[in-house]
Amino acid sequence: MALNTPAGGFFASRLDRMIGWARKYSIFQYPFVTACCGMEYMATACSHYDVDRFGAGMPRFSPRQADVLFVVGTISHKLAPTLKMIYDQMCEPKWVVAFGVCTCTGGFYDNYATVMGIDTIIPVDVYIPGCPPRPETVLDGLMKLQEKIQMGGGGQGSGNWAADN
């Protein structure tokens, strides 16, 4: 959008903020749950910790309807192509959250079977470390994600979305 005209620039920034605000409270997540971190993912999603407070209570089990990909648990080389395919199927703008240290860096599984961090395969926006992260940490990560969404544009991987705008 044209930023050099004062009025237009003003309007664009307000609109962006408006869109960001709307988006950050309607996180449709795709939980790609594989392993132990899923236990804490469940705990976070249920009534004790209640992610619904952050507008993220609605998992969509189709990548085409989701805009945040939660990668929860170890990714093995056998599973890696599936993860990549799911990521590719998501519509832009899209964000990726690496949940647990296995997805951040590989964690303590440094062996022939595991991927050393999903960022070697797909771009990641928020890293939530911990093995598994406590629900409080997850909520913190979720708030970081919201900030990032509020700031506008797509996630790391959303190609030229921000530039096109």
């Binding site: 132990c36 648990g73 170890t74 093995s76 599984y109 062996n111």
Partner: peptide, 24 residues
């Protein structure tokens, strides 16, 4: 096999106590 994380191989790498976190 999608969650194969080499538990048995990893256990052979450290000592007897190092295997405990893998068993979790």
């Amino acid at each position: 096999g999608y969650l194969h994380r080499a538990f048995e191989k990893s256990c052979e790498q450290g000592n007897y106590m190092h295997s405990i976190p893998y068993t979790d």
